[in-house]
Amino acid sequence: MHCQPHIKALVYKCLNIKQLCLLCGEPAGQPYPLCVTCECELPWLEEQCLRCALPLPLQDLLCVQCSRRSPAFEQVVAPWHYGFPIDTLISRFKHQSQWPLGHLLAQQLGMALQHRYAEGLAQPNRLLPVPLARGRLRQRGFNQAGMIAQWLSAQLGIPCDAQLLQRPHDTPAQQTLGAKARQRNLQRAFSLKAGAQVQGLHLAVVDDVLTTGATAQALASLLLKAGARRVDVYCLARTPKPEQG
């Protein structure tokens, strides 16, 4: 069953008929539907861990967890920390099917990546969206990570392979679990499609939000064991630690 919507048709009306800010409704005055005032007020992620993008009080540092044990992934790129109004926008995209908001956020992530590439960040060979289990995909009707990856692919000119990562088993939703439970929940949750060839490739896993990093760690470990050279993580937002929220 193909549950992914035809996203170009879904976002055309909002993005091409009237270029209004999708947050406040005023004229955007920019090439994308976001006015300067609303853009400046977004919770941009500045000081962060050099590896996992955890919000930190100072720049150019590693968080305690990454200092103690390097994660399997090389670099996380996230434009925002998971605060208002980004948390609301992502929720409306993810749970209320408001695809124009998702497209806007993906476009901003793409712009952030283009800036990082210009500064020297290595560009991956493929984009790989975090997969949903079949049951959850049927229930929701679309995979938000898959839509973000498709939009990024078109913007950045990087191929997207939405089938390489598989999630054959339904597991409890990650947001309902604590950090240790998340890790147990993801044991053997993912696999690669039959015949997948990733030897020597630089890959980027795409998701909406990075919380504990358990999903990113599980997928990066799987890809590295299969022969990938490097795995990065691209997401819209990074959550702080619970005591930081």
Rank of each mutant, 00 (worst) to 15 (best):
C40Q: 13
C66A: 12
I90H: 05
A53S: 14
Q59R: 15
Y82D: 02
C38T: 00
W99Q: 11
L61K: 12
G102V: 13
P55H: 08
L34R: 01
Q30V: 05
P57D: 09
P79D: 07
H95G: 12
A53E: 05
R92T: 03
P31R: 05
L101T: 03
D87V: 15
Q96F: 04
V76W: 06
L56A: 01
Q75C: 13
K94F: 08
A106Y: 03
C63P: 04
C63N: 05
Q96S: 06
Q65T: 11
P100R: 02
Y32F: 11
F84M: 10
D87H: 14
P31V: 03
G110Y: 02
G110Q: 04
K94C: 00
C38S: 01
P31I: 02
R51T: 15
G29C: 10
M111I: 06
P43Q: 03
L50N: 10
A112N: 10
L50M: 08
F93K: 12
V76S: 05
C35H: 00
V36N: 10
G29F: 09
A78N: 11
C52I: 10
Q75H: 15
F84D: 12
F84S: 11
W99D: 12
G102A: 07
S91P: 02
G110L: 04
F93D: 04
Q48A: 12
E47Y: 08
Q108K: 13
P100G: 06
S70W: 11
D87R: 15
S67Y: 06
H81N: 09
P57F: 06
A106G: 10
P71Y: 08
E41G: 00
V64M: 03
G102D: 12
E46H: 11
I86Y: 01
S70G: 09
C35D: 00
A78P: 14
Q48D: 03
C52V: 10
G29T: 14
E74G: 02
W80P: 02
L61N: 09
V76H: 04
D87K: 15
L54I: 08
L54N: 04
C38I: 01
H81A: 01
Y82W: 00
Y82C: 01
H81P: 02
A53R: 09
P55S: 07
C63L: 09
T37L: 13
P31H: 08
